[in-house]
Design a protein around this nucleic acid. Structure first.
Lengths: 155, 155
DNA sequence: ATTACGCTCAAGGGATATCATGGGCACACA
DNA sequence: TGTGTGCCCATGATATCCCTTGAGCGTAAT
């Protein structure tokens, strides 16, 4: 197993710690060494989290831009300035900081959502709402499609 | 860990000192020997700070200009002549000088912002405003994008 | 089939280390 | 004699480490 799949909701304890699902930790260990990289996602109240390989992907993307152009600067500002390293403690937990709470609205529980190459952290209610929106968008666009179906369904 | 990442706001004390975030100090120690070099960023009210390797970035840009042109001369003047060395004290703090305050508007607090190869110092409110601008620009360019997305939350 | 054991994992708590911040003191330079 | 600078230590908050608890689950034994 080398992809982040499925989702789980875990509770934040009084000291602000939350367990990263064991399955995600296993994937993480396979993809990168130790540290976790977290980033405030664009447009949605979630954090994108992964190993250092996730950061590498962003940096590779930035390297393709003219390093003195505005776009490269914005991208670096976003992924370096608005990102953070998370440390897993000995029990596989991370501490939820204000940095994370502000952007996501996370309070006492965190929804961990697998996204293949990375996973996300959401406030559970927002996650459920967003999931429904996403499903609705998909099924609407499938109905509007005349030719071959974009995704899924019965063939 | 060898890149400057995440951001933090620290308070300036009555003697004009401010702690450089411990994580940044660790990166600094790994990348360069002791010295910190600060320059006033072009176009934005921030300081670019790093080891002497920070100059590599600017010198690369100068190298791309015609050495007889005014622009190359101006750039060299700017990065070699208008920078300042910062001294870390025993507790990992630097003293905020007028040189820094003038350009940035820094008053009683400093926002340290990781930028990968270097980090920046901002007046916190200006930092927050600029961060929102940068995110808005990115999100706009993501929506206008037809093909694969340049960066960002959802893949 | 049902009970008992053992494993994994989320979650709680106490002790300790790290870090930002405040302040004292001495030395220099003006 | 002040003012700025460097060096040292004190403190409180937070993060980190280590150990414990208890629920869920599969497996094995009765």
């Amino acid at each position: 197993m080398d992809r982040y799949l499925s989702n789980a909701v875990n509770r934040i304890d009084q000291k602000g710690r939350v367990s990263v699902p064991a399955h995600f930790r296993a994937v993480l260990a396979k993809r990168s060494e130790g540290d976790l990289y977290a980033l405030r996602a664009l447009d949605i109240p979630a954090l994108d989290v992964g190993g250092l390989d996730l950061l590498d992907r962003y940096e590779a993307r930035i390297a393709r831009e003219d390093p003195f152009a505005q776009a490269a600067d914005d991208m670096s500002f976003f992924c370096h300035g608005d990102g953070a390293f998370l440390k897993l403690d000995g029990d596989g937990r991370i501490t939820v900081t204000d940095f994370m709470r502000e952007h996501t609205g996370i309070g006492t529980e965190v929804a961990f959502v697998g996204r293949g190459q990375f996973f996300q952290m959401w406030e559970p209610a927002r996650f459920h709402a967003y999931r429904e929106e996403a499903r609705a968008r998909l099924s609407r666009s499938r109905r509007n499609q005349v030719g071959p179906r974009p995704l899924g369904g019965t063939e």
